[in-house]
């Protein structure tokens, strides 16, 4: 489960990338929600965008990446793979900036199909 969260905790993009093998349904949402406070606290004190694993719930981990404009990328996963996740986040971040550069882009209306394809390809390359 991968989620992009914008200003005022509005979710902007959501994708199921198969990083948790067990079927946990909406538990994903709760885990990410619970980790948000920790992410905000760590992001305020760290110059790094990649915060590594910020929270853990049983065997499920949450990794986070906070951009300069305070857009949060959060990934729920069940295996440790720090470098893969870092590369995945960096790739998504770059595509996110490309989307932002489009003057017609509107955060509320969300991301277009090509962005979705890019994220899924990045997941195939770095996460599985």
């Amino acid at each position: 489960m991968f989620l992009i969260i914008g200003k005022n905790d509005v979710p902007l993009y959501e994708a199921n990338l198969g990083t948790v093998r067990k079927e946990i349904g909406h538990l994903n949402q709760f885990i990410i929600h619970a980790a948000l406070d920790i992410v905000d606290e760590e992001a305020a004190n760290s110059p790094n965008m990649y915060l590594k694993t910020v929270d853990k719930f049983n065997e499920i981990y949450v990794s986070a990446y906070v951009t300069a404009g305070n857009i949060r990328l959060m990934l729920v996963h069940d295996s440790r793979n720090e470098d893969g996740i870092r590369n995945f986040f960096i790739e998504v971040h770059e595509n996110l900036i490309k989307a932002l550069m489009n003057p017609m882009f509107d955060l509320i209306r969300g991301f277009s199909q090509p962005f979705d394809t890019r994220v899924k390809n990045a997941a195939k390359r770095f996460l599985i």
């Binding site: 305020a44 110059p47 790094n48 990649y50 951009t67 971040h93 900036i97 932002l100």
Partner: peptide, 19 residues
């Protein structure tokens, strides 16, 4: 502002930001 912030940080600072 947001766009320039993100773009300049990506180009100049690679995965770090100012706090």
């Amino acid at each position: 502002g947001l766009k320039f912030l993100e773009l300049t940080c990506l180009r100049e600072k690679s995965s770090t930001k100012e706090h």
